[in-house]
Design a protein around this nucleic acid. Structure first.
Lengths: 124, 124
DNA sequence: TGACAATATGCGTTTATCCGGTTATTAAAT
DNA sequence: ATTTAATAACCGGATAAACGCATATTGTCA
Protein backbone atom coordinates (compact mmCIF):
# COMPACT_ATOMS: atom_id res chain seq x y z
CA UNK A 1 0.00 0.00 0.00
CA UNK A 2 3.05 2.18 -0.12
CA UNK A 3 2.41 3.02 -3.73
CA UNK A 4 -1.05 4.28 -2.96
CA UNK A 5 0.33 6.58 -0.30
CA UNK A 6 2.86 7.82 -2.81
CA UNK A 7 0.10 8.48 -5.25
CA UNK A 8 -1.73 10.67 -2.79
CA UNK A 9 1.50 12.36 -1.88
CA UNK A 10 1.74 13.47 -5.46
CA UNK A 11 -1.55 15.27 -4.98
CA UNK A 12 -0.56 16.75 -1.65
CA UNK A 13 0.96 19.88 -3.06
CA UNK A 14 -0.85 23.00 -4.09
CA UNK A 15 1.30 23.63 -7.15
CA UNK A 16 0.81 20.13 -8.46
CA UNK A 17 -2.93 20.36 -7.95
CA UNK A 18 -2.96 23.59 -9.92
CA UNK A 19 -0.97 22.04 -12.73
CA UNK A 20 -3.34 19.11 -13.00
CA UNK A 21 -6.24 21.48 -12.88
CA UNK A 22 -4.83 23.51 -15.76
CA UNK A 23 -4.20 20.37 -17.78
CA UNK A 24 -7.81 19.39 -17.33
CA UNK A 25 -8.80 22.71 -18.86
CA UNK A 26 -6.26 22.69 -21.67
CA UNK A 27 -5.12 19.47 -23.26
CA UNK A 28 -1.51 20.39 -23.67
CA UNK A 29 0.74 22.95 -22.05
CA UNK A 30 4.44 23.64 -22.07
CA UNK A 31 6.54 24.39 -19.02
CA UNK A 32 6.58 27.96 -20.11
CA UNK A 33 2.78 28.16 -19.95
CA UNK A 34 2.68 26.75 -16.46
CA UNK A 35 5.27 29.24 -15.29
CA UNK A 36 3.34 32.10 -16.80
CA UNK A 37 -0.10 31.20 -15.60
CA UNK A 38 0.90 30.19 -12.10
CA UNK A 39 3.57 32.85 -11.78
CA UNK A 40 6.23 30.49 -10.55
CA UNK A 41 9.89 30.01 -11.35
CA UNK A 42 11.08 27.74 -14.15
CA UNK A 43 12.78 25.38 -11.79
CA UNK A 44 9.65 24.99 -9.74
CA UNK A 45 7.42 24.39 -12.74
CA UNK A 46 9.75 21.89 -14.32
CA UNK A 47 10.34 20.05 -11.08
CA UNK A 48 6.68 19.50 -10.38
CA UNK A 49 5.98 18.51 -13.96
CA UNK A 50 8.73 15.91 -13.86
CA UNK A 51 7.33 14.69 -10.57
CA UNK A 52 3.91 14.25 -12.11
CA UNK A 53 5.52 12.62 -15.11
CA UNK A 54 7.33 10.01 -13.08
CA UNK A 55 4.16 9.17 -11.20
CA UNK A 56 2.36 8.61 -14.47
CA UNK A 57 -0.03 11.54 -14.27
CA UNK A 58 1.26 13.23 -17.40
CA UNK A 59 3.00 12.49 -20.69
CA UNK A 60 5.62 14.61 -22.28
CA UNK A 61 6.00 15.44 -25.93
CA UNK A 62 8.94 17.30 -27.28
CA UNK A 63 8.28 19.93 -29.92
CA UNK A 64 11.56 21.47 -30.79
CA UNK A 65 12.76 23.35 -27.79
CA UNK A 66 9.46 23.13 -26.00
CA UNK A 67 8.40 20.31 -23.78
CA UNK A 68 4.67 19.81 -23.80
CA UNK A 69 2.81 18.00 -21.10
CA UNK A 70 -0.64 16.50 -21.12
CA UNK A 71 -2.60 14.20 -18.88
CA UNK A 72 -1.92 10.54 -19.42
CA UNK A 73 -4.59 8.78 -17.40
CA UNK A 74 -6.50 6.00 -19.10
CA UNK A 75 -10.26 6.52 -19.25
CA UNK A 76 -11.98 4.44 -16.62
CA UNK A 77 -8.81 3.92 -14.64
CA UNK A 78 -8.72 4.76 -10.94
CA UNK A 79 -6.36 7.59 -11.76
CA UNK A 80 -8.85 9.08 -14.12
CA UNK A 81 -11.59 8.75 -11.54
CA UNK A 82 -9.34 10.47 -9.08
CA UNK A 83 -8.83 13.35 -11.46
CA UNK A 84 -12.54 13.66 -12.09
CA UNK A 85 -13.14 13.75 -8.38
CA UNK A 86 -10.46 16.39 -8.02
CA UNK A 87 -12.14 18.44 -10.72
CA UNK A 88 -15.40 18.14 -8.86
CA UNK A 89 -13.81 19.29 -5.65
CA UNK A 90 -12.08 22.23 -7.25
CA UNK A 91 -15.03 23.13 -9.43
CA UNK A 92 -16.68 25.11 -6.67
CA UNK A 93 -13.48 26.83 -5.75
CA UNK A 94 -13.23 30.51 -6.77
CA UNK A 95 -9.46 30.32 -6.77
CA UNK A 96 -9.60 27.51 -9.30
CA UNK A 97 -11.97 29.48 -11.47
CA UNK A 98 -9.62 32.44 -11.40
CA UNK A 99 -6.82 30.18 -12.54
CA UNK A 100 -8.86 29.01 -15.48
CA UNK A 101 -9.46 32.62 -16.44
CA UNK A 102 -5.78 33.43 -16.26
CA UNK A 103 -5.11 30.44 -18.45
CA UNK A 104 -7.55 31.73 -21.07
CA UNK A 105 -5.91 35.12 -21.03
CA UNK A 106 -2.49 33.63 -21.28
CA UNK A 107 -3.36 31.42 -24.20
CA UNK A 108 -5.09 34.12 -26.16
CA UNK A 109 -2.20 36.47 -25.58
CA UNK A 110 -0.03 33.76 -27.03
CA UNK A 111 -1.97 33.31 -30.28
CA UNK A 112 -2.52 37.03 -30.54
CA UNK A 113 1.05 37.36 -31.67
CA UNK A 114 0.27 36.61 -35.30
CA UNK A 115 3.27 34.60 -36.39
CA UNK A 116 1.95 31.45 -34.82
CA UNK A 117 5.21 29.57 -35.14
CA UNK A 118 7.44 32.16 -33.57
CA UNK A 119 4.60 33.33 -31.36
CA UNK A 120 5.55 31.01 -28.64
CA UNK A 121 7.13 32.23 -25.49
CA UNK A 122 8.58 35.51 -24.67
CA UNK A 123 9.12 33.68 -21.46
CA UNK A 124 10.64 35.71 -18.75
CA UNK B 1 -6.60 25.41 -2.89
CA UNK B 2 -4.36 24.91 0.06
CA UNK B 3 -7.03 23.00 1.89
CA UNK B 4 -7.38 20.51 -0.91
CA UNK B 5 -3.66 19.87 -0.84
CA UNK B 6 -3.89 19.35 2.91
CA UNK B 7 -6.69 16.90 2.38
CA UNK B 8 -4.58 14.80 0.07
CA UNK B 9 -1.68 15.06 2.43
CA UNK B 10 -3.83 13.37 5.03
CA UNK B 11 -4.07 10.42 2.65
CA UNK B 12 -0.38 10.47 1.81
CA UNK B 13 0.65 8.17 4.61
CA UNK B 14 0.51 4.42 4.58
CA UNK B 15 -0.61 4.08 8.18
CA UNK B 16 -3.48 6.50 7.71
CA UNK B 17 -4.59 4.71 4.57
CA UNK B 18 -4.62 1.47 6.49
CA UNK B 19 -6.64 2.99 9.31
CA UNK B 20 -9.25 4.33 6.91
CA UNK B 21 -9.34 0.99 5.17
CA UNK B 22 -10.00 -0.79 8.46
CA UNK B 23 -12.73 1.66 9.35
CA UNK B 24 -14.41 0.95 6.06
CA UNK B 25 -14.51 -2.71 7.00
CA UNK B 26 -15.55 -2.22 10.60
CA UNK B 27 -17.79 0.65 11.63
CA UNK B 28 -16.08 1.40 14.88
CA UNK B 29 -12.65 0.67 16.29
CA UNK B 30 -10.73 1.78 19.32
CA UNK B 31 -7.10 2.85 19.34
CA UNK B 32 -6.30 -0.45 20.89
CA UNK B 33 -7.74 -2.32 17.90
CA UNK B 34 -5.75 -0.27 15.44
CA UNK B 35 -2.58 -0.95 17.38
CA UNK B 36 -3.28 -4.62 17.46
CA UNK B 37 -4.27 -5.13 13.87
CA UNK B 38 -1.60 -2.95 12.34
CA UNK B 39 1.06 -3.91 14.85
CA UNK B 40 2.09 -0.36 15.62
CA UNK B 41 2.88 1.53 18.80
CA UNK B 42 0.18 3.24 20.83
CA UNK B 43 1.58 6.66 20.22
CA UNK B 44 1.66 6.12 16.50
CA UNK B 45 -1.91 4.84 16.38
CA UNK B 46 -3.28 7.60 18.54
CA UNK B 47 -1.47 10.33 16.72
CA UNK B 48 -2.67 9.29 13.28
CA UNK B 49 -6.20 8.89 14.54
CA UNK B 50 -6.16 12.38 16.00
CA UNK B 51 -4.77 13.61 12.70
CA UNK B 52 -7.64 12.03 10.82
CA UNK B 53 -10.02 13.40 13.39
CA UNK B 54 -8.87 16.96 12.96
CA UNK B 55 -9.15 16.66 9.20
CA UNK B 56 -12.73 15.52 9.58
CA UNK B 57 -12.28 11.98 8.34
CA UNK B 58 -13.35 10.34 11.59
CA UNK B 59 -15.47 10.95 14.68
CA UNK B 60 -14.54 9.96 18.16
CA UNK B 61 -16.79 8.48 20.79
CA UNK B 62 -15.67 7.92 24.31
CA UNK B 63 -16.77 4.72 25.98
CA UNK B 64 -15.28 4.66 29.41
CA UNK B 65 -11.57 4.38 29.04
CA UNK B 66 -11.77 3.52 25.38
CA UNK B 67 -11.83 6.00 22.58
CA UNK B 68 -13.71 4.72 19.60
CA UNK B 69 -13.32 6.07 16.13
CA UNK B 70 -15.53 5.77 13.10
CA UNK B 71 -15.73 7.38 9.70
CA UNK B 72 -17.56 10.68 9.66
CA UNK B 73 -17.98 11.44 5.98
CA UNK B 74 -21.41 12.52 4.82
CA UNK B 75 -22.94 10.30 2.14
CA UNK B 76 -22.63 11.93 -1.25
CA UNK B 77 -19.94 14.33 -0.09
CA UNK B 78 -16.67 14.58 -1.99
CA UNK B 79 -14.96 13.06 1.02
CA UNK B 80 -17.19 10.04 0.84
CA UNK B 81 -16.55 9.69 -2.87
CA UNK B 82 -12.86 9.87 -2.15
CA UNK B 83 -13.14 7.07 0.35
CA UNK B 84 -15.12 4.94 -2.06
CA UNK B 85 -12.47 5.49 -4.69
CA UNK B 86 -9.80 4.59 -2.18
CA UNK B 87 -11.65 1.41 -1.38
CA UNK B 88 -11.81 0.61 -5.07
CA UNK B 89 -8.10 1.18 -5.44
CA UNK B 90 -7.22 -0.93 -2.43
CA UNK B 91 -9.76 -3.59 -3.21
CA UNK B 92 -7.47 -5.37 -5.62
CA UNK B 93 -4.53 -5.14 -3.28
CA UNK B 94 -3.49 -8.38 -1.59
CA UNK B 95 -1.94 -6.48 1.29
CA UNK B 96 -5.24 -4.80 1.96
CA UNK B 97 -7.05 -8.11 1.88
CA UNK B 98 -4.61 -9.52 4.38
CA UNK B 99 -5.31 -6.58 6.65
CA UNK B 100 -9.00 -7.27 6.50
CA UNK B 101 -8.33 -10.85 7.47
CA UNK B 102 -6.23 -9.82 10.42
CA UNK B 103 -9.00 -7.51 11.48
CA UNK B 104 -11.50 -10.37 11.43
CA UNK B 105 -9.19 -12.52 13.51
CA UNK B 106 -8.58 -9.72 15.94
CA UNK B 107 -12.24 -8.97 16.42
CA UNK B 108 -13.28 -12.56 16.90
CA UNK B 109 -10.47 -13.07 19.39
CA UNK B 110 -11.92 -10.13 21.21
CA UNK B 111 -15.47 -11.43 21.46
CA UNK B 112 -14.21 -14.94 22.10
CA UNK B 113 -13.44 -13.85 25.62
CA UNK B 114 -16.96 -14.51 26.83
CA UNK B 115 -17.49 -11.68 29.30
CA UNK B 116 -18.25 -9.20 26.55
CA UNK B 117 -18.00 -6.20 28.84
CA UNK B 118 -14.64 -6.99 30.34
CA UNK B 119 -13.60 -8.75 27.15
CA UNK B 120 -12.12 -5.66 25.71
CA UNK B 121 -8.43 -5.27 25.43
CA UNK B 122 -5.65 -7.28 26.85
CA UNK B 123 -3.78 -4.61 25.02
CA UNK B 124 -0.08 -4.95 25.11
C1' DT C 1 -8.16 8.61 47.61
C1' DG C 2 -5.00 5.54 45.17
C1' DA C 3 -3.81 2.30 41.69
C1' DC C 4 -4.46 0.99 37.11
C1' DA C 5 -5.71 0.88 31.99
C1' DA C 6 -6.47 3.31 27.67
C1' DT C 7 -5.38 7.21 25.31
C1' DA C 8 -3.28 11.79 24.28
C1' DT C 9 0.57 14.91 24.12
C1' DG C 10 5.49 17.06 24.55
C1' DC C 11 10.04 16.58 23.29
C1' DG C 12 14.09 15.57 20.67
C1' DT C 13 15.77 13.17 16.61
C1' DT C 14 15.68 11.58 12.11
C1' DT C 15 13.96 11.84 7.60
C1' DA C 16 11.44 13.80 3.78
C1' DT C 17 9.79 17.81 1.12
C1' DC C 18 10.02 22.15 -1.05
C1' DC C 19 12.34 25.97 -2.70
C1' DG C 20 15.56 29.40 -5.10
C1' DG C 21 19.71 29.78 -7.41
C1' DT C 22 22.93 27.67 -10.36
C1' DT C 23 24.59 24.63 -13.78
C1' DA C 24 23.89 21.08 -17.45
C1' DT C 25 21.36 19.41 -21.44
C1' DT C 26 18.89 19.67 -25.69
C1' DA C 27 17.35 21.57 -30.05
C1' DA C 28 17.33 25.49 -33.35
C1' DA C 29 19.29 28.98 -35.83
C1' DT C 30 22.92 31.70 -37.69
C1' DA D 1 30.95 25.47 -34.41
C1' DT D 2 28.78 29.07 -31.50
C1' DT D 3 25.11 31.08 -29.59
C1' DT D 4 20.64 31.29 -27.74
C1' DA D 5 16.08 29.66 -25.76
C1' DA D 6 13.62 26.24 -23.23
C1' DT D 7 13.90 22.85 -20.03
C1' DA D 8 15.99 19.46 -16.71
C1' DA D 9 19.05 18.26 -12.99
C1' DC D 10 21.90 19.49 -9.02
C1' DC D 11 22.92 21.66 -4.49
C1' DG D 12 22.27 23.59 0.03
C1' DG D 13 19.19 25.45 3.29
C1' DA D 14 14.77 25.93 5.50
C1' DT D 15 10.53 23.81 6.96
C1' DA D 16 7.54 20.19 8.04
C1' DA D 17 6.53 14.96 8.99
C1' DA D 18 6.87 11.00 11.38
C1' DC D 19 8.70 8.37 14.94
C1' DG D 20 9.90 6.45 19.73
C1' DC D 21 10.15 7.39 24.35
C1' DA D 22 8.58 9.41 28.25
C1' DT D 23 4.93 11.90 30.60
C1' DA D 24 0.28 13.75 31.27
C1' DT D 25 -4.67 13.08 31.10
C1' DT D 26 -8.94 10.76 31.66
C1' DG D 27 -11.98 7.38 33.34
C1' DT D 28 -12.78 3.02 36.33
C1' DC D 29 -12.74 0.40 40.17
C1' DA D 30 -11.59 -0.89 44.81
Amino acid sequence: MKNEARLFKSLADETRLKILWLLMAQEELCVCDIMGVLGITQSKASRHLRYLYHLGWVNDRREGVWMNYRLSVAPGSPAEKQLRLLAEILGSHPEAQALKDRLEQWLSAKTETKDSAAAACQCS
